[in-house]
Nucleic acid binder design. Structure first.
Lengths: 342, 342
DNA sequence: TTGAAAGCGGTACCAA
DNA sequence: TTGGTACCGCTTTCAA
């Protein structure tokens, strides 16, 4: 490789000229399974290397798919989101797709803008991690031959594919753990972000309580964040009749809750208070927390997304079947008493 | 909007046909400052809406820039990286650019593959958050008219632009804090990932010690992670003559270190042990840690990146000037004794 | 195996 | 203001 200083991308034409062959020859050299003689191929590769040529995949897509996947997401700094993003980008890259991250505020308008961008950039697929796109935009996307995959948004939008985690199962199990530990005043801490999957966790937990004949008090924190969990615990334990067993719909809330309980009120966990979370973010395993929680099987969920995007024959006009739902796996640590009365 | 079911993107031609105008008219309708009559514009917009048309920005790039920026990054789940990614995607979107996230392992080969992708996808710019691209690839990128921005990689690659944080300043200040607190056995905990900026922090801290006449013992943990900090503390405090003041080159290391010191050895922080971190990730402010640290001014750094990418006249053939360096801001919390002997 | 030509979805220029 | 035309970089078909 020698020359530099062009200030603009080198094209196949330039390579062709330098190699003394036709543009077609250059193209063929870079498409597998095309017929080029060893001789031409060598000349082309040499010229390409000298010029620093790379095939323009965007021009290529004028005929085929773009291999672009858009990820619509908010709260990227949140460990669970960052985790999902990490795994998805990896797996997508592994199958030759590139990921455009569209960072939104999660509100309808912002998500709408993002959806339009996915259309502008001819993404093969849109994967929605947060927020809910309007159904008309989903329809447009599908009509344009784009796949739409919704993750952990339990609202079924016609035509989209859905992958989700089994909230009901986690909620039931969480209640079980708390009751087995002998907790008598059980509370559910939820967030002000009423996303479908948070709401599902909440409702299922309360319902499970109803079935068991235990009253669950529901308390709404602020946004899904450490600070919200912290603040809500300060409120709760400053009042009479505070809970002795809590299910937080998110690890982040749980971690904040634990910190306030311990450092502001001197509560011991799990002796005085049992806490269960959800997500199994890395911090839940840190020595200061050792939170018992439920892990979202991100790896498998992302794998499923990739499967959907790579199966040979995408379902015409989208999917109307059920969501693929994955079982969260319980992660037993130390924030819940193992046996009653201990 | 009515019809659906096309399974492939709608083009300007289709809109033109439906609206009964020429392709040019459609194009003009969607480029600002073009001259179209109200009447045609209306017809076009109507047809476009009915068909669900969106301009193909990828085709547009055949003539102009792509407005794609590639972010090369590893360890996305790490709070500091997630934070950078969050801010950058936001700010880039705000100026009409979209972000392709290229998730790498940080090693040369993986970064090299990513660099090639940025060329394939005709990115206007490549921003490297982790790993170091080979200088020949950087040269190729620049030769193709792409801007290359390196963040926190102190190795100067000719032609690239650099933005970094002032490691020397933080290292000096960290030592000052520890010494003022009366620490006598000072250690530096670094990671096995010998990235330029980690190495700089380490070297500068040791040098500052030398100047002050205090010996600093350097201990290398595993990769930059909580667990590494934890393990290294277990090793250190199981031996004679353990440190009483530690600068960890990363908050994540510091947090793990604190947890092991407290929970495995019963050490009190800051009474028995002072700890200083770097990054100011969210978790550093959590009640269980209250880590004194240095904040990377991500907001300003990202702002600078965007400035570089949006200035009207990019420097021909790249930049060879100095890096833009930003001062980390000290965040005083509770992991260091405020005054000697307390 | 090769080169010429057409077409992918746009934009820009030109003459009407 | 409008439509026709050329061209952006690439792949594919077609004839040689």
């Amino acid at each position: 490789m020698r020359e530099v200083h062009l200030t603009s991308f080198v094209s196949a034409k330039m390579v062709a000229e330098r190699a003394g062959v036709s543009r077609s020859a250059v193209s063929r050299t870079f498409t597998d399974g095309a017929s080029v003689s060893e001789e031409t191929r060598r000349k082309v590769l040499e010229a390409a290397d000298a010029l620093g040529y790379h095939v323009n995949h965007l021009a290529r897509q004028l005929r085929e798919r773009s291999n672009i996947v858009c990820l619509i997401v908010s709260d990227v700094t949140t460990p669970i989101r960052a985790g999902m993003l990490d795994i998805l980008t990896r797996k997508l890259q592994a199958v030759g797709k590139i990921t455009v991250v569209l960072n939104t505020e999660g509100d309808e308008e912002s998500v709408g803008r993002a959806m339009k961008l996915t259309l502008h950039y001819r993404a093969d697929a849109t994967v929605v991690l947060s927020g809910t796109p309007s159904s008309s935009l989903v329809k447009t996307a599908l009509a344009n031959g784009q796949e739409v995959i919704l993750i952990n948004r339990d609202d079924r939008l016609s035509g989209s594919e859905n992958v989700a985690v089994d909230n009901a199962m986690a909620a039931r199990e969480a209640l079980f753990l708390l009751r087995r530990a002998g907790c008598e005043r059980i509370a559910l801490v939820t967030s002000s972000a009423r996303t479908p999957s948070l709401v599902a966790r909440e409702r299922q937990f309360v319902d499970a309580g109803l079935r068991d004949g235990v009253a669950v008090s529901v308390v709404e924190a602020g946004p899904t964040a450490y600070r919200s969990g912290f603040d809500v615990a300060r409120r709760l334990f400053a009042r009479s009749n505070p809970p002795d067993g809590v299910f937080c719909v998110t690890d982040l809330l749980a971690l904040g809750f634990m910190d306030a309980a311990r450092h502001e009120f001197g509560l011991r966990i799990p002796q005085d208070l049992c806490v269960v979370g959800f997500d199994n973010i890395e911090q839940a395993g840190w020595e200061s927390y050792q939170l018992t929680t439920f892990e979202q099987p991100l790896e498998r969920m992302a794998g499923h997304v990739v499967d959907l995007l790579t199966r040979s024959e995408p379902v015409e006009g989208g999917n109307d079947g059920d969501a693929a739902v994955f079982e969260p796996v319980p992660v037993w640590r130390k924030s819940v008493r193992p046996l009653p009365g201990i």
